[in-house]
Amino acid sequence: MRFASLALAIGAAFTATAAVAATNWLTVVDTAGGGHRIGNPAAKVKLTEFISYTCTHCGEFAREGTNAVDVYVASGKVQLDVRHIVRDPVDLTAAMLANCGPAAKFPRNHATLMLSQPKWLPIMSRATAGQKARWSTGAGPARRRAIASDLGFYDLMVPRGYDRPTLDRCLSDEALATRLAEQTAADAKKWGVRGTPSFAIDGTLLAGTGTWPMLQPQIDARL
Rank of each mutant, 00 (worst) to 15 (best):
V86N: 00
K46V: 13
W191L: 01
G138I: 08
V71I: 11
R222N: 05
L215S: 00
P89H: 07
D81Y: 06
G208P: 09
R126D: 10
V29L: 12
F61Q: 00
P107N: 09
C100M: 06
K105H: 15
V82F: 07
P217Y: 07
K190V: 11
R169A: 06
P118N: 05
F14W: 15
S75W: 02
D88N: 14
L171G: 01
L180V: 10
A148H: 00
V28C: 06
T209V: 13
L206W: 03
T56Y: 13
T128N: 07
T66L: 05
W135R: 08
E60F: 06
R83S: 02
L26P: 02
A68C: 06
K132T: 12
E60A: 13
R108D: 11
A19Y: 14
I51A: 12
D70E: 10
A177G: 03
A19W: 14
A42W: 10
A22P: 01
V82Q: 02
Q79P: 10
T93G: 01
R164L: 15
G65Q: 01
L180H: 02
F153S: 02
P217D: 04
C100W: 02
Y72H: 05
G208Y: 08
T128W: 08
L113V: 13
V82T: 09
A111R: 09
Q183V: 12
I219R: 01
I147M: 08
A177T: 04
A19F: 15
A74R: 09
N67V: 01
A74V: 07
G192P: 00
L113S: 03
S149N: 12
D30F: 04
F153K: 02
V73C: 00
F3L: 15
R87S: 14
R164F: 12
H36G: 09
D155H: 07
R83L: 03
A146M: 05
L115R: 05
A9N: 09
L176R: 11
K190I: 08
A142D: 11
H110N: 12
G203D: 04
N40P: 10
T178R: 15
G34R: 00
Y162W: 04
A188P: 05
T17H: 15
F199R: 02
R37C: 05
R169K: 07
M1L: 14
K119F: 13
S5K: 14
L80N: 03
G33H: 10
S136E: 11
I38C: 00
S5V: 15
I85G: 03
R87F: 14
T128V: 13
L215V: 03
A181D: 12
W25G: 01
A9R: 09
W191G: 00
A188W: 04
G130E: 13
Q117A: 06
T23L: 08
A42N: 14
E49W: 06
Y72W: 10
P165Y: 08
S172W: 03
S116E: 12
A103Q: 11
P122T: 10
V29I: 14
R145Y: 13
A62F: 03
H36I: 08
S149K: 09
A12P: 06
P159D: 05
F14T: 15
K46F: 03
E182A: 11
G11H: 11
F14P: 10
A22D: 11
K190P: 07
P159G: 02
R108V: 14
I123G: 04
G138V: 12
R160A: 08
D202H: 08
A7V: 14
S149C: 11
K132F: 09
H36C: 07
L205R: 01
W135K: 06
N67P: 01
A133I: 08
